[in-house]
Design a protein around this nucleic acid. Sequence first.
RNA 1: GGCGCUUUCGUCUAGCGGCUAGGACACAUGCCUCUCACGCAUGGAACACGGGUUCGAUUCCCGUAGGCGCUACCA
Length: 528
Amino acid sequence: MRINYAKKMNQRKVRVRFAPSPTGPLHIGGVRTALYNYLFARQHDGQLILRIEDTDSTRFVPGAEEYIIESFKWLGITFDEGVGIGGQYGPYRQSERRDIYKQYVQQLLDAGKAYIAFDTPEELDAKRGEIENFQYDASTRMQMRNSLSMPAQEVERLIAEGRQYVVRFLIEPGEDVVVHDIIRGDVCINSSILDDKVLYKSVDNLPTYHLANIVDDHLMEVTHVIRGEEWLPSAPLHVLLYKAFGWADTMPMFAHLPLLLKPVGNGKLSKRDGDKLGFPVFPLEWTDPKSGEVSSGYREKGYLPQAVVNFLALLGWNPGNDSSELLTMDELIRLFDLSKCSRNGARFDYIKAAWFNHQYLISQPDEAWVPAFDKLLQNQGIITTPDRMAEVVRMMKLKVIEYTDNEGNKKKRNISFVSDLWPLVRFFFVAPDAIDKEDKFVRKNWKEHTADEMRQLMDVLSGVDDFSVEGQKAVVDEWASASGIKPWNAWRICLVGAGQGPDMYELSAFLGKTETLGRMQHAIDILG
RNA sequence: GGCGCUUUCGUCUAGCGGCUAGGACACAUGCCUCUCACGCAUGGAACACGGGUUCGAUUCCCGUAGGCGCUACCA
């Protein structure tokens, strides 16, 4: 039975954290973890902390921290405390908390709950090579070089000599450790299968994730640890650490989120999948400082932050009713339920992501499209006014785009990005030069008598003084019904060059009388 | 290999002993229509397998098989 731990959390004010490692751009899975933390914090009127876990000095990537902060700013996920914000529990960068960790490691050492080990990485590798499934634990530690197996004087001598050493957590075997998980219920594992984890590294004189994490969560009064499923196997270790420190009574509740999986094939979502299938796996575009390699981002690709948030929120959770999946951040905050998150990995459905963007895009006022649309047109060397751009958007934003998928099939898709518009709006700004006579639509709608009909229509239009939609419609409709001619499809061929585009009156009104008549004459000339 | 998590339409999921197994994306069809659409309507499509428990299992238990993760002086 699933126990609702979220409700059990009682008097303590909710405090959660998102704690990325600045080793590169923020992965979209990390964004979702942060989002869930955010939703949980907001719905409980709690606090969200941004903590930077830079305890691996060898993997530090410059710019990653700034990237993370900018990503959340774009997405509308706000933090109450942390790097870049400040707060009462700082510093929030683990590399700035060395002294704190040192003190707590010493506490464990003094209490006999951790010990010093001198085995070098090379020696450990050798051991792993000689013993299958070697594990540094109760069964092997006495054969290793550490403060448990060696006489005290020897240990002191080695330390005095300046020998490098690590601090390992002493795990007592045979104990059932229970992790209370809000999503998965109680997860029980036996301490015998755990190894004596390194708590403090010799290479950079910094704690490992495990130690820093527990110390920080305790000191920062974190009440709920919401993180990816990859941490579930080490959660028992964390529980044991809380107990070793004597912090069991304020130990946070855990929630291990299911991972994001590849859209196709096996395995978890990776950057490669995005490259292959053409969708970003990072919120913002990222340029690798070393290789110079550029990875695309949701922002640059033309996604709206609301769409990304909405899509991500529903990957692994849903409100549990049959109402619309289009939810604002406020609605997500109200509806979100950590205990109802799904427990199995979710394939990353980037087609649905595009659909969400489509929904948010078309619900925006036309003027909101203008900046991105303007950029698109400028790239094509077209300069026009914001009003005209908004006008084109109004006429075209509900159209579909034809594209070729990875298998080479022609497919149709909604407008999901402003950039999709270009092939659909070209004719608004550029007259069709060549018209394909073999095109199905052209063959069907341009017959021998059509040129003559178009000449008649040109005469009619020439006499129209008010070239607005209404002005044209009044005159042309009358002529059409009187003559029995249905001019629209052929007219469309003249102005667009193909069977697409908006309402004909709207189009000709947009183009104006001169351009309209010019294009018609041109079409008559080449199609005859 | 060991340990843990997990398993409902192609995909995301609802379901918490008795349902024609519901919704969304995608797909197909129809209506609308001056084109392509939008919109609306309709349709195809799922409980991994085998044992139990029970009057009755998608639902509870145990296996098997698949998927995912962890198994570093990385997080």
